[in-house]
């Protein structure tokens, strides 16, 4: 278990970082908190000759509200930055809560939002809630900058649309929105430091007891975080009731295509999707952004 030798860069500006990413090409890896990358390096799963640390880019660490854009989360914000952000507590407590369900305190102190997204494992905890809140992200290259809706960011396990030899993920934006409630339920086999067996995030827009709209995103049950469109359609415009939410749960499990692995069977995960979806909906409907 040893880190291999590599050149280490810690650029002072984003432009410098982007140039390095472009110039060093596939032989380099971007380093944020390192909670995923260092493990891969030690196991020899990736063998870069250079590592570009983002640690000097403090402008990527802030969480602010920008009128007209929404809540802007810097890619280098750590999970505990999300957990402790007064702005998130006020607007989207559900995001703080989701971050708090991730890993353990040590990892939350180091791991970043950007790393969680670019790492793109199907069981990652932040993508479902961010997708449910309709987040989009900014990818900056040496000469480019583009925005991508998060729901179309992931392309497969450990795969996403970022151009690894040109782009850096700089920010995640939660647009100003009409949603009245959101939540993320994580089901794991221990209270701390356990990856999700299944995770379900929902965001709802209510008008009294009527569900105007909803977004449901499932984690760990598909190669990428996946929207439960059938369940969303079923709910749209209806007055909510426990029976309706139970039906939505059934519909959501039809949208999942889980695998059997060391943490649980596909059969179990499908049923968890059903249960977690109805519970998450009820929470978001009755308790707001939690």
């Amino acid at each position: 278990m040893f880190l291999p030798d590599f050149d280490y860069h810690a650029p002072e500006t984003l432009a410098e970082a982007c140039d390095l990413v472009r110039d060093l090409g596939p032989s380099a890896k971007v380093l944020a908190g390192g909670t995923d990358l260092l493990i891969k390096l030690k196991h020899g799963l990736v063998t870069p000759t250079a590592v570009i640390s983002l640690k000097a880019l403090d402008e990527l660490k802030t969480i602010t509200h920008v009128p007209g854009r929404g809540v802007v989360i810097g890619a280098r914000a750590t999970h505990n930055d999300l957990v402790n952000s007064p702005l998130l507590h006020e607007r989207f407590l559900s995001v703080s809560e989701a971050a708090h369900k991730l890993a353990n305190n040590q990892v939350r102190n180091r791991g970043t939002v950007g790393g969680n997204l670019v790492n793109a494992i199907p069981s990652a905890d932040l993508p479902p809630i961010l997708i449910a809140l309709d987040a989009w992200i900014t990818l900056v290259g040496s000469n480019t900058s583009r925005t991508v809706p998060l729901h179309s960011f992931f392309t497969g396990p450990s795969c996403c649309v970022i151009d690894p030899v040109d782009e850096i993920l700089t920010e995640i934006v939660l647009p100003d929105q009409q949603t009245t409630g959101s939540t993320y339920l994580k089901f794991a086999l221990r209270r701390s430091g356990a990856l999700s067996v299944t995770g379900v995030a929902v965001a709802v827009t209510m008008d009294g007891d009527t569900i105007v709209d909803s977004r449901i995103c499932l984690g760990a049950v598909f190669p990428v975080p996946v929207r439960a469109n059938d369940a969303e359609d079923l709910l749209r415009g209806k007055t909510w009731s426990d029976e309706l939410l139970a039906e939505a749960g059934e519909a959501a499990s039809c949208c999942a295509l889980p695998i059997t692995d060391i943490r649980g069977t596909a059969e179990y995960r499908l049923d968890l999707v059903r249960v977690l979806t109805k519970r998450a909906l009820k929470r978001a409907i009755t308790e707001g952004h939690v």
Binding site: N104, L189, R190, R191, S192, G193, A194, L195, I262, R263
Partner: peptide
């Protein structure tokens, strides 16, 4: 062994 590590061989934590 599929889980020769402390992430998939789950011993309890303080909060458990």
């Amino acid at each position: 062994i599929l889980n020769p590590n402390l992430s998939e061989y789950r011993i309890p934590t303080a909060v458990d």
